[in-house]
Design a binder for these strands. Structure first.
Lengths: 193, 193
DNA sequence: ATTAATTTAGTACATTTGGTCTAAAATACA
DNA sequence: TGTATTTTAGACCAAATGTACTAAATTAAT
């Protein structure tokens, strides 16, 4: 219901009606919409965690990064309301907000580390300007946070698989112009298959 | 009120209270929140139009493009609710939705033309892959549509000028790795000043 | 100055919502 | 089996919202 109607258009009472239970019952388990959303967020985190464990870290750095992106996109798609109504949710749930910021910080550090690795492996070009890649990471952040919003507006008629594929491709292509020759070749191998 | 509280948290009655008029009076002029938002959108369009007229087209292509971005960001900042609640608004206003899609199409064409010009002027590198720049334009679209949402979450404590500057810089840097040597030099001249 | 049109305010109503309280039903447990 | 705990439902309430209708006030026009 959150995914299709948007968080602001779904009330506790509507959810309980859909579930066929009384609204008091739903409130008994989740005292309001915010705690319900927190529980759903916990589900997202757990899915992301088990994803992280399942990834084979023996593969090359770029491949690990890209499968991480692909799988991450798949997971969040099922909870797309969370990203589409992100600002609404963050505005009205301080606890979730600070938790989200913490996770974002980790994500930033992870990308920074990965990029350093990729530079060391001569897959990415070294920085020519100061903090050049920091900008790239911020670009990544905006697209990671809002690709689902963008898809809702511009790709309403596409199917989920296509949407996920096209936007994860969009994200990966942020690296594209920074690739070395060998990086370029690897990129092509990873993305055409 | 839309900017600070979010569209969904502001009612016709709250607006009329703030204005010191009766809610029936407000409804007399704008029959509901949607038509009110449409009117505000019209204001945005008019501001954008007069911006377009004011820009000196004698300057070089990149400079025209970049001042366009800067000024555009400044304009939309005043109506940031529109971008932050974009999906909510589009979901609930079919007319505005189709109008928005039309404008987006124009924006896409404009960028395509500009990029072709910049390639011809040897400021941007020619495409090495098929539709490579189409991806860039889509990246531009996501950031253009959602930089204000991102800023609301990650830069809540920054002042407007800094926010506008940092995110317009983020957008411009999408072009950065595609610049030729001369393009690079021009870019630096335009962005450091 | 009188009339017509526009603008404004007030009231009333049905609906929805979040919340609280109480009691019944179901379940677990000893 | 009897008791305690957990779960569920129902009723109730105050607040807010959109909407519709009526009448007064203001403005414009002849």
């Amino acid at each position: 219901m959150f995914n299709s109607k948007g968080v602001s258009n779904v009330s506790i009472r509507m959810i309980s009606r859909e579930l066929g239970i009384s609204h008091s019952n739903l409130i008994y388990h989740f005292k309001d919409k915010n705690t319900l959303i927190e529980a759903l967020h916990q589900q997202i985190l757990e899915a992301a965690l088990s994803l992280n464990e399942s990834i084979n870290k023996e593969e090359n750095t770029l491949k690990v990064l890209f499968t991480n992106i692909d799988k991450g996109f798949e997971i969040i798609y099922d909870y797309r309301f969370f990203m589409i109504d992100l600002n609404l949710i963050m505005r009205e749930n301080a606890r979730l907000y600070s938790k989200f910021l913490e996770i974002e910080e980790l994500r930033f550090i992870m990308y920074k580390k990965k990029i350093d690795e990729l530079i060391a492996e001569k897959i990415l070009k070294p920085e020519t300007h100061n903090n050049e890649y920091d900008k790239v990471i911020k670009q990544i952040r905006v697209i990671s946070d809002y690709w689902l919003s963008s898809a809702q507006i511009y790709d309403a008629n596409e199917n989920p698989e296509q949407i996920i594929k096209s936007y994860s491709s969009l994200l990966k292509h942020l690296f594209f112009p920074y690739l070395t020759k060998t990086g370029h070749q690897l990129f092509c191998e990873l993305t055409t298959r």
